[in-house]
Amino acid sequence: MALIDIENLEVTFSGGGRHVRALTGVSLAVEEEDSFGIVGESGSGKSTVLRALCGLTPVTAGRISIDGKPVPSPRDQAFYRRVQMVFQDPYASLHPRHTIDRVLSEPLVIHGLDHVEKRVEQALEDVGLGAGFRFRYPHQLSGGQRQRVAIARALILEPKIILLDEPTSALDASIQAEVLNLLDRLRAQRGLTYILVSHDLAVVSHMCDRLVVMQSGEVVEELTREALQAHETTQTYTRNLLTASAGFTRSPARPR
């Protein structure tokens, strides 16, 4: 049985008499210790899947279960011990007036864990920052260092499932490589399960064994890494994404 099971997930945002159907029946199954990717363009609903999963967005219809048990709404503490999320923009996701120490110890206090000091130091060590960063503020860190802190914050509760929402798209290429390597290493060491959302096909192909392609709130195709590498795709949309990822091509006059 799959660790994370999402069935016919629907999310509709309503406001001012308008309804926007962000997700129109998405089903996914993610196995334990799997690294699962979601690709798609902006507005395809890929981030909404993650947000709905961890309770940041109300679910309109459908089922989400972890280990065969439906997740409670609102999510309880036990849920967040198992599932944590890393957000896209490390400049926006850390409190600007909290030290790194406070950012990292807050989840420990909420969940009543002991040895706060030791755990904070260990978490910083694990993401390659070292205890010297403990009493700094986010503005004293670079983008890559901040994203490492965000990863440390997610890992400090020792969760099994990490939701990664575009974890490297705000970073430079050279820093992206470092963060991807870190995520890879942590997954191997701790047996983590990842769901990684990205618009970058190359990043998903590097990180994930299986992936789905989303378009306007739907899953249009599910692929393995091997199939993606061999360009074995049945959907025009996926093929367009693959071509676009290869760089600029001067195509002949393009009928619209």
Partner: peptide, 20 residues
């Protein structure tokens, strides 16, 4: 060269990625 190498590619499978 470092910049060119550290990009992940769809076809490649070098792990860990070379860092700059």
């Amino acid at each position: 060269r470092g910049l060119l190498n550290c990009l992940p590619t769809i076809s490649g499978d070098t792990r860990p990625l070379p860092v700059l």
